[in-house]
Design a protein around this nucleic acid. Structure first.
Lengths: 349, 349
DNA sequence: TCATCCGCTCAAACCGCTTTGGACGCCGCA
DNA sequence: TGCGGCGTCCAAAGCGGTTTGAGCGGATGA
């Protein structure tokens, strides 16, 4: 069923039918009702390609998901972010188009999205420090919202971010208050902006107490379970093993916990762990007393907000850049306790 | 830069330019080179909406991700599946459009995708037993490939599935061989087809040894870490606690492991665990000796295959339905061992 | 030498919708 | 009665490509 057929059927012009369907005032209520009725009866739906060709609006938002060169992985936090954004898109009639693009082809991908005209705007994921994509996009003139920020980016742009620095500063302070001095930071890839901010928060807290961060206790990699485990295992085998870990994601923390247990130690008693918790649907940290002490900020909520801002921007041109800073909740769980005098290595595995 | 501008610039008709760009033979090589050169120089790219309106092909594949009513979550295996499929789409010039749709609106969503013409085909995720979507789609006439299968579906259709029944049968057999008799199945939602097959494999293995499955040891829910943990904790507190667990996903298994350790028990010695492992990028089970004994099948690979089949189907109409059955590898890890005579409850938490 | 064919190119129709610029009939007002 | 204004509706011109059918000049064959 196409518009012409529907209009012939109703003995009306395409114009009138189109206007009736799209809520224009130049149509009498009686006619409009008749049109809507017929449209529903015949399951008519405007062809989205034709419509967007005519209107110039794609009614679609692009998400470009960067694939790291080393491991071509899709971070599970994207699932949740996208779930949040997807809600908003669905409610407002937009489609979501995903492109998985290797890091080095990002620039090209954006240009293509613009000139191909397949999206009205996009969400930028996983910004690096001084990310060149931001400048590129402002130049191209495609509306966008960044999930996170890019230090040093010259242009002003909209973003939704979590207060990474403060969260990690507070987490570090708690560990210091509990008497921990050798604290390992098991961070995400420090090519990414959020990881730099987390590190900054960590280091600031140490320095505020007159402690110099030990580069030998700071790690940076893709946030997998294996990375958390291997890092913690190696550290715990050292004579000067850290008494506390600060993890950048719950998946990393799960790996750390595994290493702690393999070493015959008990998390929360022998070794403390604080993690950032993105509040992923499938990996909730929400028992009566949660397993992990954590800084929690829902990435799903971030997705909702980013999507809302972007759509608003697209729909009422005028608005300037919007910044949303989400503060993480600090959740006290079972994984933290006072620093032990010395770690008791328990060889009875 | 649009086609008309480019053609004026080249002093050629739009027809010729279009043909030159799309590789039609009616253009002299000299002209083609000239056109391609100019297109590249000016960064010309065909507007995808106009093109697809003219050709009738959307150059996009839809993924409809069902949201369960109870918890609106996006399963992390989608990330990996999509990563696999996305590779193939990118290589062949297709976009991927995602819709998150509540369970009850699925049928409507498919109709809409068809009549709106925004996709050329789609991937059906998480089929239920006798899923009505399959019939609906064959009726609508939109090419599709199912990730998984739907028992009882009447129509013939293309699918890519893992041999769930065999995997869980083999896993159960190993546990039985190790002397376990009280084995708990911590399954996914049994409204979904794959979970039914896994249960069938589990029960078949038991029955083959003359054991009757105990309904009190079979669980079904959304596959979260918390579900694994809570289920295992409750079971381990019982006097007739199971000596082994069969988990439907590594996330669930991680929860089970946590409960085992909280109970002061040791996984692999006191309690055995086998899990299905989708080989997720961020939750790999791949050490020298993997943590979990597991049936492993890469969901990412499933994504690649499903995408390939779908695109082939779309591009050369002719083909009949294709079925791909992936066999899981059976990986021996640290989480299994002979059944203990009796569980030693160790209260020293 | 003339008819035919081939290689290359073009003008115009078309894809399905939106939107501009009227047209038409009817009302109220002077 | 005449005229402007309003409420409805329509024809046609886009949106930016692809594709059909035809034209045109030069080479080929009889």
């Amino acid at each position: 069923m196409k518009l012409r057929e529907l209009s012939e059927l109703l003995q009306l012009s395409q114009t009138t039918v189109s206007r009736a369907l799209n809520g224009y005032p130049e149509v009498s209520e009686a006619t409009r009702r008749r049109v809507l009725e017929a449209a529903r009866a015949h399951g008519y739906r405007a062809n989205v390609r034709a419509r967007s060709l005519a209107t110039g609006r794609a009614m679609a938002i692009g998400h470009v998901i960067p694939l790291t060169v080393r491991h071509e992985m899709v971070n599970p936090v994207f699932s949740d972010f996208i779930a949040g954004a997807g809600e908003v898109y669905a409610a407002r009639g937009y489609d979501m188009v995903l492109s998985l693009v290797p890091d080095e082809k990002q620039a090209e991908a954006y240009h293509e999205l613009k000139t191909k005209g397949s999206v009205d705007g996009l969400i930028v994921h996983a910004p690096a420090a001084g990310d060149k994509r931001i400048h590129l996009l402002t130049e191209i003139g495609l509306p966008f919202v960044v999930h996170g920020r890019a230090t040093d980016a010259l242009d002003d742009y909209s973003w939704v971010d979590m207060n990474n620095t403060r969260a990690f500063r507070r987490a570090t302070e708690l560990l210091l208050d509990l008497g921990h001095r050798r604290i390992a930071l098991v961070n995400g890839l420090e090519s990414l902006d959020f990881a730099l901010r987390r590190r900054a928060g960590f280091e600031a807290a140490l320095r505020a107490r007159g402690l110099e961060p030990d580069p030998g206790l700071i790690f940076s990699d893709e946030m997998t379970e294996g990375y958390g485990h291997d890092t913690a295992r190696a550290l715990l085998a050292r004579p000067d093993a850290p008494t506390a870990f600060l993890a950048s994601s719950i998946i990393v923390a799960i790996g750390i916990r595994r290493a702690i247990e393999e070493a015959g130690l008990k998390m929360g008693r022998d070794v403390s762990v604080i993690t950032h918790d993105d509040d992923l649907g499938y990996l909730q940290n929400r028992a009566e007393v949660p397993v992990f002490t954590a800084t929690r900020s829902s990435v799903r909520e971030a997705g909702r907000q980013a999507a809302t801002i972007l759509l608003d921007q697209i729909e009422n041109r005028a608005e300037g850049p919007v910044h949303v800073m989400l503060e993480a909740e600090f959740i006290l769980g079972q994984s933290t306790g006072p620093a032990p005098k010395s770690i008791q290595h328990d060889e009875a595995t």
